[in-house]
Write a protein that binds this DNA or RNA. Structure first.
Lengths: 126, 126
DNA sequence: ACCTATATATAGACTTGCTATATATAGGGT
DNA sequence: ACCCTATATATAGCAAGTCTATATATAGGT
């Protein structure tokens, strides 16, 4: 029974933008650092690969939600990103929208949680 | 400034399967009813079109997470769906996994919520 | 000199969801 | 009898988001 089941790791589909924007709320960061911040901030749950992250950054920049500047010639070339005013607004809007959906889904799934407490009752890590 | 922003309505990306499975936890339902249950259960937030739903049902059935039976010739032809044992297990697993991600994302977004209380402090609908 | 970590980038495939379209029947109003 | 709407399922074609694999280049340690 080698199940071959689709996409075990995808609850973040559509939310990566949100996460990237969120780690930029308080600091300017460059790609490689963003990647690691995401891993840290999620206790390893979110592990975005470079090939996933950079296209997102390019897309967010094309949409003018973030803005970039190359490092001023100090050896390592790094592209620093920061939120634009528009990006900050979008982040807030989408965050609230996500919360609404999350509350909704949580409610819809309530019977499932009630039915099966799963391995541990309180493994609230993250 | 006609922003042309991508995908305003996509926090459910990757979670539709979960929702469909969840409405089937306690009853057998056919497609059209599932569609309406989703709308009701989400207070109109989730409004899946037929062209979105049926492919999902076919996929879930191909994965043997649900099972179908045509209505026994009572005028309207309806295809009734129910969870399989495997589907029930998957639902539980994915639900818990989703919760973990949701808790995580909620924590990451906490500063955003703190910064901007948004229009209303308590519009907890759904 | 070599290896690893750092740093960015793109191509190609795959999954998911959307819109549009097609088909068919039951039931109500005229 | 006829039309219209709600019911009911289905598929094709497109767009978007993510993944894997690959490429390039440099800093620093051994």
């Amino acid at each position: 029974m080698t199940d071959k089941v689709r996409n075990e790791t995808d609850p973040l589909r559509g939310n990566l933008d949100l996460m990237v924007l969120s780690v930029l709320t308080e600091e300017r960061l460059y790609g490689y650092l963003i990647q690691r911040r995401l891993t840290e901030a999620s206790s390893g749950l979110v592990n975005v690969q470079a090939g996933t992250l950079y296209p997102i950054l390019h897309r967010l920049e094309a949409d003018k939600l973030i803005r970039s500047r190359w490092d001023a010639g100090t050896g390592r070339r790094r592209k620093w990103y920061e939120l634009t005013a528009s990006g900050r607004k979008q982040l807030s809007q989408r965050a609230h929208q996500w919360q609404q959906y999350a509350d909704c889904l949580r409610e819809m799934l309530a019977p499932v949680f009630k039915a099966a407490p799963k391995t541990m009752p309180d493994a609230t890590d993250c």
